[in-house]
């Protein structure tokens, strides 16, 4: 599905992504963990085309997408989210949805295509909004939503887009702990419908719970890879998260 091989990207002297190779299998939920500044978001930016890798290549569904235009990559079915979800502030919740609809995608290039949004599209958007508890707020500007609602709108938009690969940057951050389990089951439900996932999060419990496979990153490099159980038992990962001294104390 997604194949990242030997990607590198430096900001001046900082090697934010340093020789990273990673795979996302079709129909899998793949996690990416690592401390602050490990390079996770930068890797997301490289995959989605927002940043150009200095070296390496990225393939998606047997196509080379290295250095393609980010909007073209999005059209191939890769949808990435951002660490801080702000949406389109001065557009309504419904408009936020429509921008990601197939209807808009197929018609936006001409200023003369029909203006009317078909009932099916509105209904599909309404159903998703209802599912995320946002239906009553459909005519409200996104800037007037609370932070948790904005987070829900972000998932709702992703569902509207119907991506092949969904890349989530810290989906659990800022989500009410009581709702994290429902978030995990939504992700699994989508996976069962055929969507593949690459997700970054600091909440290890959530990541281990939801992911089939995990990659751990530190200082721009992949330091461990495997099933959740394998990765959290890995020496280097333990050192990273608990700290070397703490670990020796434990022994």
């Amino acid at each position: 599905m997604l194949d990242v091989s030997s990607c590198k990207l430096s900001f001046g002297g900082v090697k934010a992504v340093d020789d990273v190779s990673l795979r996302v299998e079709p129909g899998s939920i793949t996690g990416l963990i690592g401390t602050n500044g490990a390079g996770k978001t930068t890797l997301f930016n490289v995959i989605s085309g927002f940043l150009k890798a200095d070296a390496g290549s990225i393939r998606f569904m047997d196509r080379d997408i290295t250095a393609r235009d980010p909007s073209e990559i999005a059209k191939l079915g890769i949808l990435r989210t951002f660490q801080t979800p702000v949406g389109f502030p001065r557009m309504t919740v419904m408009e936020n949805m429509l921008v990601f609809s197939r209807h808009d995608r197929d018609r936006r290039s001409s200023p003369f295509s029909p203006a009317r949004v078909p009932a099916e599209t509105l209904e599909a958007a309404s159903a998703i909004l209802a599912d995320f508890g946002l239906y009553q707020k459909r005519d409200v500007w996104a800037e007037d939503l609370s932070a948790p609602d904005l987070k829900m709108l972000e998932f709702a938009r992703a569902m509207m887009a119907g991506p092949v690969l969904l890349m989530l940057d810290e989906p659990a951050a800022g989500v009410n702990p009581a709702l994290i389990e429902s978030l995990a089951s939504r992700i699994r439900a989508l996976r069962d419908q055929g969507v593949s996932f690459l997700l970054v999060d600091h909440n290890l419990k959530f990541v281990c719970n939801v992911c089939d496979r995990i990659f751990a990153m530190a200082d721009g490099r992949i330091i461990a890879e495997g099933t959740p159980d394998e990765v959290i038992a890995d020496q280097k990962v333990l050192e990273l998260y608990i700290g070397k001294s703490a670990k020796t104390d434990l022994q």
Partner: peptide
């Protein structure tokens, strides 16, 4: 017509949040 059509909505999306608009496939 242009403003209320998908063309105008995309234009507004770019105005509001260019990076997010790109992820919707807008150039």
């Amino acid at each position: 017509h242009m403003v209320i059509s998908p063309f105008g909505r995309s234009l507004k999306a770019v105005r509001e949040n260019e990076a997010l608009a790109i992820t919707a496939g807008i150039a």
